[in-house]
Structures are given as C-alpha cells and as structure tokens.
C-alpha cells in the first residue's frame, strides 16, 4: 500500500465534507444503500418510465393502428366494422392509383437522398478537410443555423420563390416538391457526413497520397468506405423525412400526391381510418427494411 495514502485521512476528509453525509440509518440512506447493492432494481427503475412511455404506449399505439388496418368502415353509417379483412391491403396492391403514388413517393425519397448526398458530400469535405479550424467552427454554425429555422418557413420560402410572379417563377409540381424537400433536408445530410469526415484521420489521406493515389482514387478506396456509415446515417433522415411528407406537397406540390397525402385525405375528408392505417403501413415497412439494411453499416451509432 502506498504510504502516502493514509487510510484514516481519506476517511476523515469524507466525513468532514459538508452536505455529503446523511445520518446513518436514515430512510434515505437505507434506500441509497439498497439501490447501491441491487443494480437490477436500479436498472428497472431507470427503464420503467421510458419503457412505459415508448415501449408500452407508443409501440402499443402503433400496434393498434396496424390492427385497425385490417378493419373496415361501414359505407352508410361511417362506423368502424371490427372484423378482420384483407380488403384495404388488396385495394392498395391492386389499385393502379395507389401503386403509382407509392412508387412515386419512393422515387421522390430516393431522388431527394441522392441529390442531398451529391450536394452535401463536397460541402462536408471542404468543411472538414480544407477549412482551417477557425473557419470550420463558423462553417458548422452556418450549416446549423438554417436547421433551426422552421420547416414551414423554408417550405414557404420556396413557395414564394417558385410562385408565378416570384424570383424563380418555375411554378409548382413534382419537381418543386423534390427541390423543396432536398432543400429542407440538406443540413441533415451535411452534418453526419461532416462528423464522419472529422473522425477520418488526415494521416490516412496523406498515406494514400504518399502511395501515389490521386484525389479520385483516394476518395473511392479510403474516404468513401470509411465515411459510408455517416452517409447512411444522413440518408435515414433524408429518406424517412421525404417518405412521410405531405406538407411540402400541399405547399409546392401542385396536384401530384405522395403517400402522406393519401393517408391524410383518408383520415380527414374520407373518414376512413382503416384504409389510412393500411396506407400508412407502406412507408413503415419500407422504413423498417431501410433501417435494418442500414443498421449493418453501423449508421445508427452515427446519428
């Protein structure tokens, strides 16, 4: 034992520290001691509220919604008919309209993700690897600030820009939706990629350079494989947020509807919750497949 560490002295300091010592045997102290000894009890207490909220209430709501998708609505009374039926899903799969809308939504989500990736990667690379540390700080702020500006405000900005008399005046439609969604989710793509590039040691890039690799080859064989989890993390945002969106469509989309609009219209105007629920499972299933695929890359740790 280290002679400089006097056991008694340590104990003295602990007892003398104000506010640290509760009277021994008090109920609070006994509870603390009990908790200290029983890690499992501590864990269950910590997990209780979050799991009750997210595990029971939220997952329960999702499950209930999924069950509703197999019900139907009485066309005359508008009441729920709680009998199992595949009718909603049959309508979605066989209905020409719904297939088109589902594919269109998927296409929009993929396109928005690709556009954002192509714009975000060079930006993030210049930020992480070319800018000086001082400039980096300011660039991160510059990318972060519009993220705090309201979603609606940004969609509205594009409505004004694209309106017939506006600065761009290109009009509304599917192209406007893709443009607006790409604009909205761009920072969500830049930030994870920037963080991923920050973690990528410069020495690896130098080593690739020393071994004779030019820029493109270094990118293809070193940078891209190592930052792919970060790219995947960013794509979760761009993909998922695009897939469920119906607000941007209402603001700039003109008449070309996405899945979200079908869900919305069936709840509001058509008052057909079972059908809305069935349609809503389409993006969820797509998203679950996407998350499962992306999880292998370690993207969830990069969020």
């Amino acid at each position: 034992m280290d002679p400089r560490l006097d056991g008694d002295q340590g104990l003295m300091t602990a007892t003398a520290a104000p506010g640290v010592h509760a009277p021994p045997g008090g109920p609070r102290r006994r509870l603390a001691a009990f908790l200290h000894r029983h890690a499992r009890v501590r864990l269950s207490l910590l997990l209780s509220a979050p799991m009750a909220w997210l595990g029971a209430a939220y997952l329960g709501s999702l499950a209930a919604l999924f069950v509703t998708a197999f019900w139907s609505v009485d066309t005359f009374t508008g009441n729920l008919v709680k009998e199992f039926t595949w009718a909603n899903f049959r309508d979605i799969v066989t209905g020409e309209v719904y297939r088109t809308i589902a594919l269109r939504s998927l296409g929009v989500a993929v396109l928005v993700t690709l556009i954002d990736l192509v714009i975000a990667f060079p930006m993030a690379f210049a930020m992480a690897k070319l800018a000086s540390p001082r400039a980096q700080r300011w660039l991160v702020i510059a990318v972060l600030t519009p993220l705090w500006a309201s979603y609606l405000v940004k969609a509205y900005a594009w409505r004004v820009l694209l309106s017939a008399g506006g600065v761009l005046g290109w009009g509304y439609g599917l192209g406007a939706t893709v443009l607006t969604l790409s604009y909205l989710w761009l920072p969500y793509m830049i930030l994870p990629i920037y963080a991923g590039l920050e973690r990528l040691p410069n020495s690896l890039l130098d080593a690739a350079g020393d071994l004779g690799a030019r820029g493109w080859r270094t990118f293809r064989t070193v940078v891209w494989p190592l930052t792919f989890p970060a790219v995947a993390a960013g794509s979760i945002f761009t993909f998922s947020l695009s897939l469920g969106d119906y607000i941007a469509v209402k603001i700039v989309g003109g008449s070309s509807q996405l899945i979200g609009n079908v869900v919305y219209d069936n709840i509001g105007a058509a008052n057909n919750l079972p059908f809305a629920a069935a349609v809503a499972t389409v993006p969820v299933v797509i998203m679950l497949f996407y998350l499962a695929a992306v999880r292998r890359t370690g993207a969830l740790e990069n969020l």
Binding site: L43, L47, P50, M51, L54, G55, A57, Y58, L59, G60, S61, L62, A64, L65, T68, I236, S240, L241, L243, G244, D245, Y246, G260, V263, Y264, I267, L273, A276, A277, A280, P283, V284, M287, L291, L300, L303
Partner: peptide
C-alpha cells in the same frame, strides 16, 4: 448491460425515424 439494450436505442429513435404522419395517426387513434 442487459438483454435488449440495443432495442432500447432503436425504440427511442423510432418516433423520428418513422414518418411523422404514422406517429400522428397512431397517437390520434390511441
């Protein structure tokens, strides 16, 4: 460390990973 620890992280990400309209109508219904 406990059984299902990974799932807890996934469960917490789920409400923002799923499209907002799904969370919206699920909660509305509930």
């Amino acid at each position: 460390s406990f059984f299902g620890r990974e799932s807890v992280s996934l469960l917490i990400v789920l409400p923002i990973a799923l499209p907002g309209i799904v969370t919206g109508i699920a909660l509305n219904n509930a």
